[in-house]
């Protein structure tokens, strides 16, 4: 009778319920068939239970992604909550997979679930990490490109939270532009 189960402990609720998605590229299948919803969570405790259970991003094989989005938003440009938005993009060198990738991704997750962007946190849709042989990427997605004040505030806070040098520059790209160009050619709408 003295045993306390996790169900009896008051967990710390998050502002939003979040969904973890996993993508593994199987070229013979349509893109959407390769994307799976893993689970959702809405407490601090359940976030850590999930985080400690899944593979670190640096251990995933190439052409896999994790996405974490507010529940109900699919991790794709076409979703109505994403299509007018864009992303702050962090591009990493091959060497950074072993030195920085997991730390930067965890920091990104903590920014999201902790609502780190103050009154602009509602603008955040989610984040994506792409594991790629040519260099990994992390992106923070927001819902409306035209909300300049919100987008730049989020970018400044995000850059600071990632511990990037003040000399480093990160760019924000509209999904509408990324969808029509290869990402290496997409122009930055904002930089911080």
């Amino acid at each position: 009778k003295d045993v306390v189960t996790t169900e009896n402990v008051d967990k710390h609720p998050l502002q939003s319920r979040w969904a973890l998605w996993f993508f593994k590229n199987v070229r013979s299948q349509p893109w959407q068939c390769n994307l799976r919803l893993v689970t959702t969570f809405n407490t601090v405790e359940d976030f850590w239970a999930l985080y400690t259970h899944v593979q670190l991003a640096s251990k995933l094989s190439s052409e896999c992604d994790y996405s974490i989005f507010k529940d109900g938003i699919e991790p794709m440009w076409e979703d109505s909550r994403n299509k007018r938005g864009g992303r702050w993009l962090i591009t990493l060198s091959k060497q950074q997979r072993h030195s920085d990738l997991d730390t930067l991704w965890l920091e990104t997750l903590l920014c999201l679930i902790g609502e780190a962007f103050d009154e602009y946190s509602e603008e955040v849709c989610g984040a994506v990490i792409n594991i790629r042989a040519k260099g990994d990427k992390i992106a923070l997605w927001t819902r409306e490109t035209e909300n300049r004040e919100a987008v730049t505030y989020i970018g400044r806070v995000y850059k600071e939270r990632l511990g990037l040098s003040s000399k480093a520059v990160i760019g924000y790209q509209a999904h509408a532009d990324t969808a029509t160009k290869s990402s290496s050619l997409t122009k930055n709408k904002f930089v911080v």
Binding site: H12, V44, F47, W48, T52, L110, G114, E115, A116, S121
Partner: peptide, 20 residues
């Protein structure tokens, strides 16, 4: 009431949960 948590608070739960 908005539920926001700073990174130190969130990190504090990492090992509590892991040890459960």
């Amino acid at each position: 009431d908005k539920k926001s948590y700073d990174r130190e608070f969130l990190l504090g739960f990492q090992f509590i949960v892991a040890s459960m």
